[in-house]
Amino acid sequence: TGIAFVMECFELGLITTSHTGGMDLSFGNRLNALELVHQMAAGKGFGAIVGQGIRRMKELFEKEYGADSALLQDIGMESKGLEFSEYMTKESLAQQGGYGIALKGPQHDEAWLIFLDMVHNYMPTFEQKAEALHWFPMFRTWFGLCGLCKLPWNDIVPEDNKETPEPAKVMKHVQWYAEYFSAVTGRKVTPDDLVLMSEAVYNFQRVFSLRLGYGRREHDTLPYRAMGPVTMEEYESRQERYDKQLTEKYGVDIAGKETPEKVAILRKFREQQYEELKDAVYERRGWSKDGIPTLETIKRLGIDFPEVLEVLKANGMS
């Protein structure tokens, strides 16, 4: 992801050979890409800059090289400082939320919803997407809390799983994990109890992020490329699809409109729907409009420790 960002910056003229130590980093230049990897490992040359990650590269390219800040933000595939794992999320609003609202940043182990959203269409409404973006991150967090691998949960499913009310959750296996936990600990638990365990930890982590100066709505943002086409070339490469969406989904009369105008119109709609998704997810998780766990949520989860309440109070939640 980082090398792709550097190569695109080179292609767009945002950086040149004067910045890269003479290396031509055009797409497809495999020998220089390999040299860059070696420089990153050694912490030398231009590789020492690339090795710091996209977030720091964006800052440096703007301040030191005079690169266009807005364009860097649009094409730099990172959120919360973490580079994207390799899923193209433009057409999956649920996966956009799975990346952007994830505590750690855009890594799909917290909420891998793109297949359920795009292939099975399990969550067509904002409310259904919000429910998925609550339940799946919580249950997946539970595996980490218990030191378990999630693969036996949903990579091999019961034969009759598709006939269950919520096949995406593979609830027969979730029930098995509840029984497993009960057998090991002696505590009788249900599948809902497993999610509740994670919910307490997850919200505590959100408050900890808040304590560090993060953990608000503004930090759950995504580069626009994760939502839609940034450049005219991107739009025109799938023009039929995007034109159809503008006319049929958004009711826009595109007659006589040039590509730059259509790019801007589509962007307005796509950014708006992502903000609406955040509203729905925050409400489902018991968070404020600014993405902060409410006092009611903190008390319900039993994590209303004095230090937690102090952080909430300092951020206007009392």
Rank of each mutant, 00 (worst) to 15 (best):
residue 137 P to E: 05
residue 150 K to P: 10
residue 111 A to K: 04
residue 125 T to P: 05
residue 66 G to M: 13
residue 129 K to R: 11
residue 80 K to F: 01
residue 180 Y to K: 09
residue 64 E to G: 01
residue 117 D to F: 01
residue 185 T to Q: 06
residue 103 L to N: 09
residue 192 D to L: 06
residue 127 E to K: 15
residue 187 R to M: 09
residue 71 L to C: 03
residue 151 L to V: 15
residue 124 P to A: 13
residue 177 Y to R: 13
residue 177 Y to Q: 12
residue 178 A to N: 02
residue 160 D to H: 11
residue 119 V to A: 03
residue 183 A to N: 09
residue 145 L to Q: 12
residue 149 C to R: 10
residue 70 A to Q: 08
residue 178 A to R: 04
residue 101 I to L: 10
residue 108 H to P: 02
residue 192 D to P: 01
residue 177 Y to M: 12
residue 98 G to V: 05
residue 83 E to N: 15
residue 109 D to G: 02
residue 161 N to P: 01
residue 139 F to T: 00
residue 103 L to E: 07
residue 163 E to K: 09
residue 67 A to M: 12
residue 175 Q to G: 01
residue 184 V to F: 04
residue 126 F to A: 07
residue 112 W to V: 08
residue 64 E to A: 07
residue 160 D to M: 08
residue 168 A to Q: 03
residue 131 E to T: 15
residue 140 R to C: 09
residue 157 V to W: 00
residue 75 I to N: 05
residue 141 T to N: 08
residue 106 P to M: 08
residue 113 L to D: 00
residue 170 V to I: 07
residue 150 K to D: 14
residue 115 F to L: 05
residue 173 H to T: 15
residue 103 L to M: 12
residue 190 T to G: 04
residue 113 L to P: 00
residue 108 H to K: 11
residue 81 G to L: 02
residue 138 M to H: 09
residue 133 L to F: 02
residue 181 F to I: 04
residue 85 S to Q: 11
residue 173 H to V: 14
residue 114 I to F: 05
residue 91 E to R: 10
residue 172 K to R: 13
residue 155 D to C: 14
residue 92 S to L: 05
residue 100 G to V: 07
residue 104 K to M: 04
residue 76 G to M: 13
residue 136 F to W: 10
residue 165 P to H: 05
